[in-house]
Write a protein that binds this DNA or RNA. Structure first.
Lengths: 154, 154
DNA sequence: GTGCCTATGTATAAGCC
DNA sequence: TGGCTTATACATAGGCA
């Protein structure tokens, strides 16, 4: 799927290998998601970069429900100050908290972006209404509209 | 990739769903294998059919090695001496994984939204250029612009 | 269900910023 | 660096046997 036929062998050039990894990894995850949705099956996919970073996809219907339940129970336990004092466990907790915070912030950003889209769309719509009025008005007054430029409009 | 564009939604017809599952499952596994070879990375893929049958692919290293790596990403030792039992620790790790995935997906959504904003802004800009032309043209022809409506514009 | 066929939609190797 | 574009290779939906 590219300019050249690909040979199934480790790509030796580091840069090309990185680019291919990035492209194919996202393609693979996309296809995993499609398969899980189209065929209503559960899928778990783990991809580790050579530097150890993990990229994963999991459809987990039942799994995610279990996790949600687990997470809420987990927060309750936190509030009740159950004895979780092991240093590594603490680090893990902070990791979870940090991720929840990140998620919250990203959702905020998403809301703002969507609001912005609506705003821009609104002014665009109003502008087009005005254009419609102008066009109509020009026709009514039998002015041959010098407005071929209108064809520029989407 | 077929006679028709596919809609990302569960295929309701059982027979088609089964055929698609079979085709796409092998395609997915093939691509997972290609990625692992071309980019020299480790991959584990699990697909559960709706009847519970497991189809899996995992690159070179044994599954257990990959899972070990998955678990050790947060420097957590999976043993009884750490105060949490295996199930709880496992669930917590999976919870972290889920959050990472959420974060990734939110970032992607954000990118898409920003792209959308740019697109809408572009058509808006073009529309306003046209309006400018019209206004100019009307003035040139000494038509008192019946265009107070223009004040609606931002 | 199983396998091929082929038209068509997708993924992606290169290349250009 | 990462996005975007283009030409091509690939995957696969719908058919048919």
């Amino acid at each position: 799927m590219g300019r050249k036929k690909v040979v199934l062998k480790r790509i030796e050039d580091k840069s090309s290998r990185q680019v291919t990894f990035s492209k194919r990894r996202s393609g693979l995850i996309k296809k995993a998601r499609e398969l899980s949705v189209l065929c209503d099956v559960e899928i778990a996919l783990f991809v580790f970069s050579s530097r150890g970073k993990l990229y994963e996809f999991s459809s987990g219907n039942s799994l995610s429900k279990i996790l949600d339940r687990y997470q809420s129970r987990f927060h309750v336990e936190m509030n009740e100050s159950k004895g979780l004092n092991d240093i590594e466990t603490q680090l893990m907790l902070e990791s979870i908290m940090g991720l929840h915070e990140k998620e919250r912030m990203l959702r905020e950003e998403k809301k703002l972006l969507q609001r912005k889209i609506r705003a821009v769309q609104d002014t665009k719509d109003r502008t087009e209404v005005v254009l419609g009025l102008i066009k109509h008005s020009n026709n009514q007054l039998a002015h041959p509209p010098q407005l071929e430029t209108l064809s520029l409009l989407p």
